[in-house]
Design a protein around this nucleic acid. Structure first.
Lengths: 155, 155
DNA sequence: TTCAAAATCACTCAAAAGGGTGAGCTTAAA
DNA sequence: TTTAAGCTCACCCTTTTGAGTGATTTTGAA
């Protein structure tokens, strides 16, 4: 209860205490001012300095609570309309069956699932994908998908 | 060159000007003090208040907020903006490190290559990717990439 | 201070993926 | 008819990936 209140209002309490401390310093300086009677500028300057520091300190304490934000810049998907790059397709000599496999690959299917979907054996899909990787000059299906999208072979 | 100097030292210049302004106010208050001869506490309080505000303002201006920045570079798809779906990211409880791994996955890197790029062990990447698959409810990296793009977690 | 999440790493085991080779079968072009 | 390309499939072998478990350290927030 009490400790919860303290922890919740820690900032405010610290601020209050600091203020009190500063006022004490102020009083002490005031006394000096009365005694010495000449150091008005010093007195004012000290107050200014102290409270500037207080302000900075206070602000840093309050601001450091800021949320961690994730900022991502840049670009993708102008979207909606996809135009197959037939030129590139011909240039790389990618057959229709290979393109089909690439599309299913991009949708996240395993070779086994692709084989079932196309009613052929797993080995056939392996052959297709191997040839595909050769033609696309990649080594992994994720690379193939990435390059396929980049070259507008798949949406 | 002159403008460059100004823009580079804007903060300092603003601070200097503010200080000058405050000193003017100080002088004005001092004059009042001399005239009225009774408002010492008000004078000191005003100085304290003004400089506290100055300090707070200064700190907010100067202190750079702690931000975690994840920059995704994809020169391939120019001229369109990608907006990270932070809502989905939070909903699925995907951590920043996991997102990082997903991005590298999408670019076609193997776990080993990702590990080298992030200077951690292969096992660590495996753990990250496993957790990622659980959170994305997928079983393969190609599916993860596909779903990541669909949910706007990666470009 | 305490607690939970995140990040790190290790280990095992099984499944999936990939490289390489060879080989039928079909179809379209030379 | 010969030839080339595409599609199909098999086998072997290695690497990669993924699941499951457990552990330590770091970090951030209450």
């Amino acid at each position: 209860m009490a400790s919860g209140f303290i922890s919740r209002n820690k900032q405010n309490i610290i601020y209050g205490l600091s203020l009190a401390l500063l006022l004490l310093i102020l009083k002490w300086l005031e006394w000096h001012f009365v005694v010495i009677q000449h150091s008005f500028e010093i007195y004012a300057g000290t107050i200014a300095l102290l409270f500037t520091i207080l302000g900075v300190w206070l602000a840093t304490k309050l601001i450091s609570r800021k949320e961690k934000t994730v900022v991502v810049e840049k670009a993708v998907y102008p979207d909606s309309s996809f135009i197959l790059n037939k030129t590139e397709l011909n240039r790389l000599r990618i057959s229709s069956r290979e393109l089909e496999v690439l599309q299913l690959m991009a949708s996240g299917l395993s070779n086994q699932q692709i084989a079932e979907k196309l009613f052929v054996s797993l080995n056939t899909i392996k052959t297709h994908s191997s040839n595909l990787f050769l033609k696309l000059e990649v080594e992994r299906r994720t690379q193939a998908v990435e390059k396929g999208k980049r070259l507008c072979l798949i949406p």
